[in-house]
Design a protein around this nucleic acid. Structure first.
Lengths: 120, 120
DNA sequence: GACACCTGTCGACTTTTCCTGACAGGTGAA
DNA sequence: TTCACCTGTCAGGAAAAGTCGACAGGTGTC
């Protein structure tokens, strides 16, 4: 996973996934070895609902990957591990990514007063 | 500016500064050349108060630098330009940064039900 | 004087993010 | 059955982020 292969939106999603101390810590722990949700929650002292949300966010960004497995005694365990990503952030790199950004979301701008269309 | 020189908190600040489409676009425009606030606001179609906030955020993260100058006709112009940063994000890199994170903020956890310390 | 341009800040509003507590299901062991 | 462990989800509220409009100051030109 390299910086050049990403669209601007994907890059922002990755960056906002990493823009949180707790999520950085999650990635850090998983970088030391794969782990399952409940154990990870005890490891970093957070509740499982919170951890579950952050794991989903990290997985959606493609930074970690989860797999549901069955342990030796038949219990379902969801193991997560990091994907070996490598992003390089430089001004020119960001400029290239910005060129592929969604153009300022026409979905959420106009519902205000739209009196500018009659005056080009 | 390299990834290894940063503390975990600084890294999170940089990441959260970049975790926004508008701010990525600001950096992208400034990567093409320095610019002053009002012109930049027209360039990317945002109001000046909004742009001002985002510029402060980017400057606080050390990604851009502003300098107040006087134009030829005596007007005060605040020019911003990008600093040539270069961050590399990898799992091991994040693990190293996580080791220097502020330890989960003891300032904002306890103010819930504290039946043990009604008398400090 | 009025106007156009530049700089900044303030309060109020809406939206998003984050956390909590309680809930649902499942398995195996005492 | 009861317990301990595993999985997931839901509504509710607190905090932060983002946006908007109006305000303050400055300069120079018509």
């Amino acid at each position: 996973m390299s910086s050049e292969d990403l669209t601007g939106d994907e890059l922002v999603e990755i960056l906002s996934a990493l823009a949180n101390p707790l999520r950085v810590r999650i990635v850090a722990v998983l970088a030391g070895g794969r782990d399952y949700v409940s154990h990870l929650a005890r490891e970093i002292r957070v509740s499982r609902p919170v951890l579950h949300m952050h794991l989903k966010r990290l997985e959606a960004a493609g930074l970690i990957a989860g797999s549901l497995e069955l342990s030796a005694d038949g219990k379902a365990m969801k193991y997560y591990e990091v994907t070996d990503f490598c992003l390089t952030l430089t001004p020119s790199n960001l400029a290239a990514a910005a060129a592929t950004l969604t153009p300022s979301d026409p979905l959420k701008n106009p519902p205000k007063n739209s009196t500018r269309e009659e005056n080009p």
